[in-house]
């Protein structure tokens, strides 16, 4: 990948975010009630509404409101929360940090489970082990999160009492307790994702093991282990990178139920709170931050892919 291309991709990310910001801003504009009405309620007097509108700058033309908001955003200022009266940015960034930690640990655990399972299923294709892996991973993906989470809480927190059932501790405060608190949510999320990736690894590896170059490696007398790892798995894992990047998106927004059950104040939970409170600046910030994280994750996946597969040449 050439530096020029990397620069261009960064430009595209900015472009994407600009479009997202337009959409997010437009949605808040077409809502039937504006920020002032939401703040003061349906029964507010016309004078009070006008005063608040004056204070929030809602009287200005729409494009000027957008420009002001965007101007703040690029400086890291997403405005003031209508709910708490505090700046939105620090709140959302903290929440994002917690969600990213959850996401990262979940992905690591998921890979540690899913890749070996996929390899076993591919190597023992059509036999009992393949069937068991496939049934187990489908059970994992088809059970709703709250069921999986409840089972884990019941077994590990309630009966065995080895892990705390809920709550969040910042790793900067107490790393060990932080990990203990994260263990159950990470386990729950990983179980959901394992099916995805193990099926992907399995089918890719089955294809690769049937390829001419794997046959050539076998006929060169390479040991089965070398054939499987160096020639097989390495190539089979490439498409998995893309899947993992897509999962990042799910992990940021889609695990609200898990964050809710385990009382983790992640970005998904913050966004729900903001939507319930009609806290427009917080909603805008949450949506934009998630879009940015998602774009960066995909970019990182493309970089990793190009690094591992030299045929991929972005220009």
């Amino acid at each position: 990948m050439s530096p020029a291309y990397a620069l261009k991709r960064c430009g595209l990310i900015v472009y994407t975010l600009l479009v997202v910001s337009l959409i997010v801003f437009a949605i808040t504009q077409v809502l039937p009630a504006d920020a002032a009405t939401m703040l003061l309620g349906e029964n507010a007097t016309a004078e009070a509404l006008a005063a608040v509108r004056e204070r929030l700058g809602l009287e200005a033309p729409v494009w000027l409101q957008y420009a002001r908001w965007l101007g703040g955003v690029v400086q890291g200022d997403f405005g003031t929360s209508l709910r708490t009266g505090l700046p939105v940015a620090p709140l959302m960034m903290e929440a994002l940090g917690r969600s990213l930690l959850l996401a990262l640990l979940s992905i690591l655990l998921m890979l540690a489970i899913a890749v070996p399972l996929g390899v076993i299923a591919a190597v023992r294709r059509g036999r009992a082990a393949d069937l068991i892996v496939s049934v187990l991973s489908y059970v994992g993906v088809s059970l709703p999160e709250f069921v999986t989470a409840t089972v884990f809480v019941l077994v590990l927190a309630d009966w065995l009492q080895i892990l705390p059932a809920s709550g969040y501790v910042a790793p900067t405060q107490d790393p060990l307790r932080a990990l203990q608190h994260l263990a159950l949510p990470v386990l729950t999320v990983s179980v959901i994702l394992v099916a995805h990736v193990s099926r992907m690894v399995r089918s890719e590896l089955v294809d690769v093991l049937h390829s001419d170059y794997v046959r050539a490696a076998r006929l060169k007398g390479m040991k089965p282990r070398t054939v499987l790892l160096r020639h097989g798995l390495r190539n089979a894992l490439l498409p998995t990178i893309t899947i993992v990047a897509l999962d990042v998106g799910y992990l940021l927004g889609g695990v609200i139920v898990v964050e809710e059950i385990f009382a983790i104040p992640g970005i998904g939970r913050q966004l729900i709170v903001a939507i319930q409170a009609r806290d427009l600046p917080a909603i805008q910030a949450g949506a934009l931050i998630m879009a940015a994280t998602y774009s960066v994750a995909n970019f990182a996946a493309d970089l990793a892919y190009a690094w591992l597969d030299k045929r991929i040449q972005y220009d």
């Binding site: 170059y213 050539a216 006929l219 390495r234 190539n235």
Partner: peptide
């Protein structure tokens, strides 16, 4: 047999573009 393949019997395949691992 694994010891013999590649050491005592070699093989050259039809299509070199598929019989070489693309990522090595």
């Amino acid at each position: 047999i694994e010891e013999i393949r590649g050491r005592r019997i070699g093989m050259v395949f039809q299509d070199p573009s598929t019989s070489l691992n693309p990522t090595l």
